[in-house]
Amino acid sequence: MPARLKVGYCRPPRQPDCVNDRPVPIWINDPAALQAHFAQRPGRIGLDTEFIRERTFWPQLALVQIALDTGRGSLAPDDILLVDPLVPGMAEALTGILADTRILKVMHSPSEDLVAFRHTCGVVPTPLFDTQAAAAMAGIGSGVGYQKLVEQLTGTALAKGETRSDWLRRPLSAAQLEYAADDVRHLFEMHDVLADQLQRTGRLAWLEEDAARTLANAMAEGPERWPHLSLRSAGFLEPDVQRRLLRLLRWRDQYARTHDRPRTWILDNELAVNLARNPPIDLGGLLRVFDSQPKAPRKLADAVWQALQTPLADEAQAPDARQAETRDKHLLRRLQDAVAARSRELDLPDGVLASRRWLEALMDTGEWPSALGGWRRAVLEPTLGPLLTTGDNATTSV
């Protein structure tokens, strides 16, 4: 029985059948049709999404591209599915495919795609092979984009055309369909090359460990506990001001998630810092401040006032943002140099072994952060351990 349409949903006009006289991939606007293509489960699929995130906190999933590994070699047009997630029941149909651990999901730099899938489907694609991360571990380069990596590994130059398209409109244009299909058309070729390289160098387990952590983090994604640390200006604020700023930022994040609005549309960073530094004496004072700020959230004044005045249960434990100014910069430089030297020995691009932020966390707490656990710790600890014993790793709080 066909899925019942949601109130307000209108089935869009038919999609084009050809692009430049070539058959286009299969347009899927029926959950049963999607499930039929997976009656026999493939060992792997290529996966990508198009989404819109201009006016919302959560990415709005607008299109899901799936390449099916049929074992026939090069992909035929009917091996690529363009799935309309706006159709009622489609998210539920996708969920079973994404969660099926028998199917490897090959993706490229999927961090935001994972957020979109988790928000729309409640799951993330498991297991995962990230071709961008694989290229870094293979020594090709760090953060290499899809188009550049496709050209480097397959010799195919892709058009750049539709990155700014409105993917929520229906029907999609022929150019959009072709662009979307290209985003998964070459994933299997790249997977074959990269998996072989990593297998030969013994680094495939590294990639699998990173992928598992990426998926776990995506599923556990939630409000940042100490958002004030992300603001550079917080490093110049006194502890009591930092605590007020923390209250406002936590409230803003929760409101943004609940009401699906970008954080800065609710309360911009500059205004939050100003309120924390110069707190009004009462609600009337807050309203006067808002009157002088064109983008101030006047309708939310009561909530902002309540957040500003209400201490957080854990705010006394908040790290002092000023520690960046007192951190041992010479030790940090020695750690960075040691990581760079180890990267050269392993033929790894900069940034793969350890970022500056991870090293700072290691210095501040004296404990290896989860991002530096597993294979990275095994590679780095013999080099970094002796250096850390010379520094002061005590953590300060505001």
Rank of each mutant, 00 (worst) to 15 (best):
P2D: 02
A3H: 02
C10L: 13
R11N: 09
C18H: 14
N20V: 10
N20L: 14
R22E: 10
H37G: 06
G46R: 13
G46P: 07
G46Q: 12
T56N: 09
Q60N: 04
Q65W: 03
Q65K: 01
L75R: 08
L82N: 05
A91W: 00
A99H: 06
V106N: 03
M107W: 00
E112Y: 13
F117C: 11
R118T: 02
H119D: 11
D130K: 08
A135T: 10
A136K: 08
G141N: 06
S142A: 11
L149H: 10
T154I: 10
D166P: 05
L172R: 09
A174L: 06
V184D: 08
H191P: 00
H191C: 06
Q197H: 11
E208F: 02
E208C: 01
N217T: 06
L231F: 15
L231Y: 15
L245R: 12
W251G: 03
R261P: 00
R263M: 10
T264I: 02
L271H: 06
N274I: 04
L275P: 00
R277W: 09
P279T: 04
G284M: 07
S292P: 00
L300M: 13
D302I: 15
W305C: 07
Q317A: 15
P319V: 15
D320G: 06
Q323M: 14
A324Y: 05
Q336M: 15
Q336Y: 05
D337A: 14
E345G: 03
L348N: 02
L348H: 05
S355K: 15
L362R: 11
E367I: 00
E367T: 02
E367N: 04
W368L: 03
G374W: 10
T383Q: 12
